[in-house]
């Protein structure tokens, strides 16, 4: 690309002028384009629905006798002698498989405390002599509002954990000098007749940032 002859030089100058003119035009069209287009080039994010209120509820699953007393609710269910006869403790009956027969008046009770259905004697916990109370295996009588003592008579380590705050639900203050700890009782979570925690629905899982734009997250690989 040494020296160009004058005519070629002139031609080259013309080309440069055309390019400059063209550039000017392109710049002005860009200006117009920019002025009217400020949306980002990404798919609109789908609105994620708010989580159902039921998953935000933190109240205990069950109410204990003590809760009912506190809330001044109807306690007639706990008045056993409204139906039973004080002088005649009810007899427990079993079928041929040694499975407890639940009378139709107590059909709401599911007996599954302990494995192999061995814990099927009502009087393991209920006081045969006074149905309105409970009893520990050593014969000590326990009131309905003092369940941990009853449960702990068999589940010693669990009671110890519960007393230390390591088992069961707590709320309120970790710092006892600033406020009280509220500790739920055994029957707030466990049904004494069927103490395993029932299964329940899980709250919705995570939503990914770019779910809309083909960034499919790894669906369960298991």
């Amino acid at each position: 690309m040494a020296k160009l002859d004058p005519s070629a030089q002139k031609k080259s100058d013309h080309t440069a002028n055309y390019w400059l003119g063209g550039l000017t035009a392109v710049f002005f069209s860009l200006t117009i384009f920019f002025a009217f287009n400020s949306k980002p080039h990404v798919a609109a994010q789908p609105e994620i629905p708010l989580v159902d209120k039921k998953f935000l509820d933190t109240s205990p699953w069950r109410q204990t006798y003590a809760d009912l007393v506190k809330a001044k609710e109807d306690l007639s269910d706990y008045d056993c002698y409204a139906c039973h006869d004080k002088a005649k403790p009810p007899r427990i009956r079993y079928d041929t498989n040694q499975k407890i027969i639940i009378p139709k008046e107590h059909a709401n009770i599911e007996m599954s405390h302990g494995t192999h259905e061995r814990n099927n004697i009502c009087y393991n916990c209920h006081n045969e002599q006074n149905l309105n109370t409970l009893q520990v295996r050593d014969g000590n009588v326990v009131k309905f509002d003092n369940i941990p003592q009853l449960c702990g008579s068999c589940h010693g380590p669990t009671l110890r954990d519960w007393e230390a705050g390591a088992h069961g639900r707590t709320s309120g203050y970790w710092d006892r000098q600033l406020g009280d700890i509220n500790r739920l009782s055994c029957a707030n979570c466990h049904n004494p007749h069927a103490p395993d925690i029932p299964t329940r629905e899980a709250a919705p899982g995570p939503h990914y940032l770019h779910e809309a734009s083909s960034h499919e997250p790894s669906k369960s690989h298991r």
Partner: peptide, 11 residues
């Protein structure tokens, strides 16, 4: 080995 996106009716 964990699953982040499990969607269980019963847990």
């Amino acid at each position: 080995k964990g699953n982040h996106n499990y969607d269980s009716k019963q847990v």
